[in-house]
């Protein structure tokens, strides 16, 4: 589905990603973990096209997307969420989710301005899709609220609804439970599992080990820009390299 081949990215000579290669299996959840500064954010930004990588290939749908701008990658069917969400405070919850359907809504200014019956019907159809997504993520009751009035946890759900609403082939989730309490985290975990059952392929970037171990099929570990391990959650849990990366050498010895 998505394959990274020897991806490199330097920031002013400092390697942020060093020959990173791995692939996502269709219909599975792959978690990307690693200590702070390991390059997780850089990787997700490279994959989604927000920053270009220096070398290497990123194959998505039999096409190298490593040189494509972000909006073209999104149009190919890859969406993402952001660590500190980038929702539109001015719009309602429903309209924020509708933002995730911008590609489907069309780009013609003239069509939009005339709002002919075809556009009206399309808007209604998109609205239904957005409502369905809101229902799935459990915030349909707040659909017409201004986003600013939502509690933090609900904003996270809105952002996930926005990423899934268009039915993308791959979703990149950037720390979906950062800042949530254990109860909310469990709810998000259930939602992620639900989305897997619905057939989505997900790349999950996360700090919360419990969540990662619970939901993922495959885990890859980054440390200082290098991929140091990959495998099932069980294998990763026992991998000494991973323990070392997280706890340092003394921790691994102890």
């Amino acid at each position: 589905m998505l394959e990274l081949i020897r991806v490199n990215k330097n920031f002013g000579g400092l390697p942020a990603l060093n020959e990173v290669s791995f692939s996502l299996n269709s219909g599975e959840i792959t978690a990307l973990i690693g200590p702070n500064g390991a390059g997780k954010s850089t990787l997700i930004n490279c994959v989604s096209g927000i920053i270009p990588c220096d070398s290497g290939k990123i194959i998505f749908k039999d096409q190298d997307i490593s040189r494509l701008p972000a909006h073209k990658i999104t149009r190919l069917g890859m969406t993402r969420t952001f660590q500190n969400f980038r929702l539109v405070p001015r719009l309602s919850v429903l309209d924020n989710v509708l933002c995730g359907l911008t590609v489907q809504a069309g780009r013609s200014f003239i069509k939009a301005m005339l709002r002919l019956p075809a556009t009206r019907h399309q808007e209604r159809r998109l609205r239904l899709m957005a409502q369905e997504a809101l229902d799935l993520f459990g915030i349909i009751a707040k659909a017409d609220w201004p986003l600013a009035a939502l509690p933090y946890g609900d904003k996270k759900r809105v952002e996930m609804a926005r990423a899934f609403v268009a039915g993308p082939d791959i979703v990149l989730l950037d720390e979906p439970v950062a800042g949530l309490n254990p109860e909310e985290t469990a709810e998000i975990a259930a939602l992620i599992k639900q989305m897997r059952r619905n057939g989505y392929t997900i790349l999950l970037v996360e700090h919360d080990m419990e969540l990662v171990m619970k939901v993922s099929d495959q885990v890859v570990v980054l440390d200082s820009g290098r991929l140091i391990a990959g495998g099932t959650p069980e294998e990763i849990r026992r991998n000494p390299l991973v323990l070392e990366a997280y706890l340092g050498k003394i921790g691994a010895a102890a």
């Binding site: 539109v88 309209d95 509708l98 933002c99 013609s108 200014f109 939009a112 301005m113 005339l114 808007e123």
Partner: peptide, 15 residues
């Protein structure tokens, strides 16, 4: 203008 801002184009601009 009202039509434009209520469309996908308008939401895109807001984003």
């Amino acid at each position: 203008c009202l039509n434009l801002v209520r469309s996908g184009v308008g939401r895109g601009l807001a984003a």
